[in-house]
Computed example of a mutant assay.
Amino acid sequence: MGDNVTFWERLVIGHPVCSDWKQEVEGSIYHLASVFFVLGCMGGSGYFGLLYVYIFFAISFLCTSLWAWMDVCAADVFSWNFILLLICIVQIIHLAYQLRTVTFDKEFQDVYSAVFKPLGISLTIFRKIISYCNAEVVTLERDHCYAVQGKTPIDKLSLLVSGRIRVTVDGEFLHYIFPLQFLDSPEWDSLKPSEEGLFQVTLTAETKCRYVTWRRKKLYLLFAKHRFLARLFSLLISSDIADKLYALNEKVFVDSGFRFDIRLPNYYHRALPDQEPSTTPMIRIQISP
């Protein structure tokens, strides 16, 4: 215990007081290293923030290593700073690999910029969504069907990039699907991962269309590994279904001239008499007495 007290006393109050400070400065390299170290401490979070931090730390440790080699001539100071420099270089290489430029088709770039980037999804995560699920861009010619009612199996999820799709059931028009909307979000939401089913509507291209498609089973495997991607797609699909329901609601009329609200099945109100007749096909519902 006495040795410990002696040590701490020597450390706190027993050391010699600096009565004569060194007059000459350490040199510009040492001060430059300190400046770069301070700049490195100002980095943010995320991949780009870490890349910023390690780049400035690497420059700082490089300058300190040069200072220890040329001015101080201290092997231990040089060795430690050189080791820290190597660690920073390894981290920079790793981060640069994570942020390397990823080349996508134009359709993938459009989907990322319009849908995933605003939600804060990085290119690294988007690359997993594309590559792991073998996503592909498919062209659908005019008047060709993406799905046929009662015949086409529900085995994929597709997002329209360009063109317009007409949705019909038993030959009756339901609604259109426009770019950046899912082609089969209701079908996706209606089935569990282990279930199989057939389309209950027909989807026909009114113009030449391009869409991005993922295989259903591949997506479920990806969701099992990355739960936040499952929540992300659930949010996107739910929002897409809601948009389709609202679009469908605007086209629903009954024979008596009342507008039927599909959100409130027991409530409907009369359409305004001065409304101009719409050229958009309407769904007419016959209310039984």
Results as ranks from 00 to 15, higher is better:
Leu229Gly: 03
Thr101Ala: 09
Phe223Cys: 05
Leu198Arg: 02
Thr279Arg: 04
Glu276Val: 12
Ile129Gly: 04
Glu107Pro: 03
Gly171Asn: 00
Thr124Ala: 10
Trp8Val: 15
Phe253Gln: 15
Ser79Val: 13
Phe126Leu: 01
Phe233Trp: 04
Ser19Ala: 06
Gln286Thr: 14
Cys63Leu: 14
Thr6Asp: 15
Arg100Leu: 05
Tyr220Glu: 11
Arg215Gln: 02
Ser158Asn: 00
Ser19Ile: 14
Arg284Glu: 14
Glu196Ala: 13
Leu11Ala: 11
Gly27His: 01
Pro273Val: 13
Arg263Asp: 07
Phe57Thr: 07
Lys151Val: 15
Arg215Gly: 04
Ile165Trp: 01
Leu11Gln: 01
Lys106Met: 02
Val17Cys: 03
Asp240Met: 01
Asp170Ser: 11
Cys88Thr: 10
Phe199Gln: 06
Phe173Asp: 08
Cys18Asn: 05
Asp105Asn: 10
Ala247Gly: 01
Phe48His: 01
Phe78Val: 10
His144Gln: 11
Ile92Thr: 08
Val5Ser: 13
His226Ala: 01
Ser194Asp: 15
Arg259Pro: 05
Ile237Asn: 12
Phe82Arg: 07
Phe7Met: 09
Leu62Glu: 10
Lys251Asn: 12
Leu140Arg: 01
Thr207Ser: 10
Ala271Ser: 13
Leu159Gln: 04
Leu236Val: 10
Ser131Asn: 05
Cys209Asp: 12
Phe37Gln: 15
Gly150Pro: 02
Val148Trp: 05
Phe182Gln: 06
Cys18Val: 09
Tyr47Gln: 05
Gly49Ser: 10
Tyr220Leu: 01
Lys251Phe: 04
Ala68Phe: 05
Val35Glu: 02
Ile83Thr: 09
Phe56Ala: 07
Ala58Arg: 07
Pro273Asn: 07
Ser122Gly: 03
Leu203Ser: 08
Ser278Cys: 02
Tyr268Cys: 14
Ala224Cys: 00
Tyr30Leu: 14
Val161Lys: 00
Leu140Ile: 06
Phe7Val: 13
Pro153Asn: 12
Val212Met: 02
Tyr132Met: 00
Glu250Val: 11
Lys128Gly: 09
Gly150Arg: 00
Tyr30Val: 09
Glu206Leu: 12
Ala247Val: 10
Lys244Val: 10
Ser190Asp: 10
Val115Gly: 06
Val17Arg: 03
Leu203His: 13
